[in-house]
């Protein structure tokens, strides 16, 4: 197994405030890791730091992605290298057609990788294929990017973009938030179809519910800027049952999950 993503001692500040305080994570190709944790623990910050958002300042540590220093790359270079962030709040872009946007993005990535540019016919063929696999109708194609989309449509559109761009590493930032159960199933099914031995995924979620449908290889607990516990899928169930109160009173041992190990003092 090869390490796809290696995050070492990551510290990051947002608006002068330290949010990530020494985060370590290793993800192998083919794995899905879930990151859970209370509000304000730094879950979304991790996603934005990986994607390269301005204003998220890394003060210490490093991130190696397939052996390359991710932090030195512009956001577009990271995307072209295969990093994809499914946004918690996908941005509305009035006037920019969804299909045109996605084709421009895909071709920018293909150009970066020295691959042939797809013409609109070739692109539409690819899009039809993906839509069919994901069971998504084509009505989203003709609209402006996320403009006027419902919460569920926005999240489905993120998964659809992911399916077309075929990233090596996908980070799903609370993709389940605000979804009803049917939308949640659609999104989860989309993610499961993209599971492959060459692809790594980080599923950031506040609730365990999504993990009923996307079964992770590992579950991490993020609290106060660090991963404090790591375990198997059953860790998520325990967290659902008992909440995050144990973070304050006594650590992982009180959770009584056999496979879980404490990775840092909370």
């Amino acid at each position: 197994m090869s390490i796809m993503l290696k995050i070492t001692d990551l510290h990051a500040k947002v608006a002068g405030k330290e949010i990530l305080k020494g985060l370590n994570l290793e993800l192998e190709a083919g794995e899905i890791h879930a990151i859970m944790g209370p509000n304000g623990a730094g879950k979304s910050t991790l996603g934005y730091v990986l994607a390269g958002r301005e204003g998220y300042e890394v003060t210490r540590g490093e991130i190696l992605f397939n052996g390359k220093n991710l932090l030195e790359m512009e956001p577009e270079a990271r995307a072209c290298e295969g990093v994809f962030l499914a946004f918690q709040y996908p941005v509305e872009i009035p006037g920019v057609n969804n299909t045109y946007f996605l084709r421009t993005a895909l071709n920018a990535q293909r150009k970066y990788r020295g691959e042939e540019i797809l013409d609109s016919v070739g692109f539409l063929r690819l899009v039809r294929e993906k839509l069919e696999v994901l069971h998504i109708g084509d009505e989203l194609l003709h609209r402006a990017v996320n403009e006027g989309f419902s919460g569920g449509e926005k999240k489905r559109n993120e998964i659809f973009q992911m399916a077309v761009l075929e990233p090596t590493l996908a980070i799903l930032d609370e993709t389940d938030s605000g979804l009803d159960i049917d939308a949640l199933k659609t999104v989860a099914e989309g993610v499961n179809r993209l599971r492959s031995k060459d692809r790594g995924m980080i599923v950031v979620t506040h609730y365990q519910r999504l993990l009923d449908y996307i079964v992770p290889d590992k579950v991490h607990v993020l609290a106060d800027g660090r991963l404090v516990a790591t375990g198997g899928a059953e860790l998520a169930l325990k967290l659902e049952e008992q909440g995050y109160a144990w973070l304050e009173d006594g650590g992982i041992a009180s959770l009584n999950v056999a496979s879980a190990v404490q990775t840092a003092n909370p």
Binding site: A51, G52, R53, E54, E74, P75, E76, R78, A79, C80, F84, L85, F87, P90, V91, I93, P94, G95, V96, F101, L102, T104, A105, L106, A108, Q109, Y112, A144, Q161, L165
Partner: peptide, 20 residues
């Protein structure tokens, strides 16, 4: 940023937004 995170260069993203 959203557009750049999908692979568009910063200039291309800005041009696409103003043109739209």
């Amino acid at each position: 940023f959203y557009m750049r995170s999908r692979g568009l260069s910063e200039q291309a993203a800005r041009q696409l937004l103003t043109t739209a």
